[in-house]
Nucleic acid binder design. Structure first.
Length: 489
RNA sequence: GGCGCCAUCGUCUAACUUGGUUCAGGACAUCGCCCUCUCAAGGCGAAGACUACGGGUUCGAAUCCCGUUGGCGCCA
C-alpha cells in the first residue's frame, strides 16, 4: 500500500492527561514516525464545559513535554479540520440525517425508566438483552409523546442477520454476532453525537487508516464497523492496546493513583526516560534491548510486537531508568540546564543567586548527580545551600557522643590551619591527623559528616566540605560542640 | 445477565506466528560479595516461574485445540 499512514489520538478534555493516555499517544506517534505517516490530534470535547479549555491546554502541554509532536490538530491546521469535535456538530447532524433518510436509523421515544425496566426484566430472566424499539409505537403514540415533551434519541438500526469480523493487529480475529448488539444510540436526545458515531465520522473524514486505541474500545469496534458499512465507507485497520492496571489490578484511574503526565515533570522525571519506560509497558523490540533513544524506538517499533496482556503499573523501574538517564543519557550541560528550575522551585536558591554562583552550584549538582532518582531529589543537598537544615535523629544517636566530640574538637584546630581549603588538602590533613592518633580515618569521617551535614549519607566528605567552605564548616562544628556541652551539662 | 478481551519469576517482558536449539532468557526490585569515608553509582553473584488449573492433539507443548477458574472491559 502506498497510501499514507494516518493515525490519531482523540483525548477528551474532561479528565486529565495521565500515563495511560500518554502511552496510547506514544504508540500512535511511534507508528506514524516509523512509517513516515501523519499523527493527528483531535480533541473530543462534545461535553462542552468551561474547564475544557484548561484541560485542552494540559493535553497540549503534556504532549509537548513528551515531545510527541502532532502533524495536524490544535495549533497545527491540516486539510481535515476542525480538530475540535465541538466545532463539527453540523457534520454529525448531516450524516445522521443521511441514515434516517435511508431507514438505517430511527428516533427512539422510550423514556429512561422504560428502558431501565425492560433491562431488569430480561436480566432477571437471564436473557440476553438488546434494546430495540423500531416500530414500537404507533404514530399517535409518538405524537402524544412529542407533545409531552419527550426528546428522542437517534438509534442505529442494527442489521440483525450479520456477523461482524475484523482482524485486530494485536488480538487477531475478533467476531461478534450483530444480533448481540442493541440498537445503539448515535445521537443523544440533547443533539450531541455519541462516541461511536462521532468517532467513525471523524476518522473517515480525517482519512484515518489505522485506529490504535485502548482495549476498552474493542467492544465498540463491531458497532463502528456497522456504521462504516452503513455509510459504505472504508473500514480502517484496528490495533487495540492492552490497558495499564493499578497494583490492585483495577484499571488505572485518578482515584487509584494514576498521575498526570505533568506531575512527572514536576517531580523531575526526564521526558526521555518516561517515554522509554512507557514504550516498554506493553511493547518490546524482541531482544534484550531496553534502553532506547526515540530514534531507536521509531526504528524498531511495530504493532505486531505489542503484548496483548494488560500490564500492572509499577514505578520502581521508572525510577531506576530515570536515574540511569540522569547519569548516562544526558550530557553535563543538558543535566545542568534541566536541574536549574528545580534549584529555584524548591527554594534552594533564588534566580539572582543562580547567576552569581553558577560555577559553585554546578559543582554541587554534579556531585549529587548519581544520587538523584528524580531531579527534585536535589533537595537532599539542602545543607550546601543553607545552615538551616535538619539533623537526622538516627545519625545523631550514632555519632553525637563523647568520643566523637573530643576528636572533632581537636581536629577543628587542624582544619582552621588549612590555607587552601580544597578536598585534597582537607583529606591530607584529616588522614595525617588520624595517623598521628592511631585511629582509622572513618572514625573521624563519619561523625564529622554528621556534624557538618546532619546526615550519614551523601557525597564524599572532602568534596562536600570544600563546597560548603572553611568558615561554614568550622561554624557548624563549633555550634555542635557548644550544643553538646550545654546539653550534657 | 449477555457478549468480548486477557493469562510466563513480586513487576515489565523474551521464547508462542513457523511445536524439539528452553529442566524457560533479560531487566527492575530483593539478598550477598567486591570497590569504598557513608550513601549512591559501578562490577560480580544468588535467589525467584512445576509457563493459572484440567484435559486433548503429538514421538515431543510455554508454544496448537477444548474446557474450567480468575482478571479486565462493553452494553445502563
Amino acid at each position: 500500500m502506498n497510501q499514507e499512514i494516518r493515525v490519531r489520538i482523540a483525548p477528551s478534555p474532561t479528565g486529565f492527561f495521565h500515563i495511560g493516555s500518554a502511552r496510547t499517544a506514544l504508540y500512535n506517534w511511534l507508528f506514524a514516525r516509523h512509517h513516515n505517516g501523519k499523527f493527528i490530534l483531535r480533541i473530543e470535547d462534545t461535553d462542552t464545559s468551561r474547564s475544557s479549555r484548561e484541560m485542552t491546554k494540559i493535553i497540549l502541554e503534556s504532549l509537548g513535554w513528551l515531545r510527541l509532536d502532532w502533524d495536524e490538530g490544535p495549533g497545527k491546521d491540516g486539510n481535515y479540520g476542525p480538530y475540535f469535535q465541538s466545532e463539527r456538530k453540523e457534520i454529525y447532524n448531516d450524516y445522521a440525517h443521511r441514515l434516517i433518510k435511508e431507514n438505517k436509523a430511527y428516533w427512539c421515544y422510550c423514556t429512561q425508566e422504560e428502558i431501565e425496566k425492560e433491562r431488569t426484566e430480561f436480566f432477571n430472566k437471564k436473557m440476553n438483552w438488546q434494546h430495540r424499539c423500531r416500530d414500537k409505537f404507533s404514530t399517535e403514540e409518538i405524537n402524544k409523546r412529542k407533545k409531552a415533551g419527550i426528546m428522542p434519541a437517534l438509534r442505529f438500526a442494527v442489521p440483525l442477520d450479520k456477523k461482524i469480523t475484523f482482524t485486530d493487529i494485536i488480538h487477531g480475529e475478533v467476531e461478534k454476532e450483530a444480533a448481540d448488539i442493541e440498537d445503539f444510540v448515535i445521537m443523544k436526545s440533547d443533539g450531541m453525537p455519541t462516541y461511536n458515531f462521532a468517532c467513525v465520522i471523524d476518522d473517515f473524514l480525517m482519512k484515518i487508516n489505522y485506529v490504535i486505541r485502548g482495549v476498552e474500545h474493542i467492544a465498540n469496534t463491531p458497532k463502528q464497523i456497522l456504521l462504516y458499512n452503513a455509510f459504505n465507507i472504508p473500514v480502517p485497520d484496528f490495533a487495540h492496546l492492552p490497558v495499564i492496571l493499578g497494583k490492585d489490578k483495577k484499571k488505572l484511574s485518578k482515584r487509584l493513583g494514576a498521575r498526570s503526565v505533568l506531575e512527572y515533570r514536576e517531580e523531575g522525571y526526564l521526558s526521555d526516560a518516561l517515554v522509554n519506560f512507557l514504550a516498554l509497558l506493553g511493547w518490546s523490540p524482541g531482544g534484550d534491548e531496553e534502553i532506547m533513544s526515540r530514534e531507536r524506538m521509531i526504528e524498531l517499533f511495530s504493532l505486531e510486537r505489542i503484548n496483548p496482556a494488560n500490564a500492572i503499573y509499577d514505578e520502581t523501574k521508572l525510577d531506576w531508568l530515570n536515574n540511569h538517564y540522569i547519569i548516562n543519557r544526558i550530557d553535563q550541560v543538558n543535566f545542568l540546564n534541566q536541574i536549574k528550575p528545580f534549584l529555584i522551585s524548591t527554594g534552594l536558591v533564588t534566580e539572582d543567586d543562580y547567576s552569581n554562583k553558577k560555577e559553585w552550584l554546578d559543582r554541587i549538582c554534579l556531585l549529587m548527580r548519581p544520587r538523584l532518582k528524580v531531579l527534585k531529589d536535589i533537595t537532599k543537598a539542602r545543607y550546601f545551600f543553607t545552615d538551616d537544615f535538619e539533623y537526622e535523629p538516627e545519625a545523631l544517636k550514632k555519632y553525637f557522643n563523647n568520643k566523637s566530640l573530643s576528636l572533632v574538637k581537636e581536629f577543628k584546630q587542624n582544619l582552621e590551619s588549612i590555607k587552601f581549603f580544597d578536598a585534597k588538602n582537607i583529606e591530607e590533613t584529616l588522614r595525617d591527623y588520624c595517623n598521628s592518633k592511631q585511629i582509622k580515618a572513618k572514625e573521624l569521617i563519619h561523625p564529622l559528616r554528621v556534624y557538618i551535614t546532619g546526615t550519614e549519607a551523601g557525597p564524599g566528605l572532602f568534596e562536600t566540605m570544600e563546597l560548603i567552605g572553611k568558615e561554614r564548616c568550622i561554624k557548624r562544628i563549633s555550634k555542635m560542640i557548644e550544643k553538646y556541652e550545654h546539653g550534657t551539662d
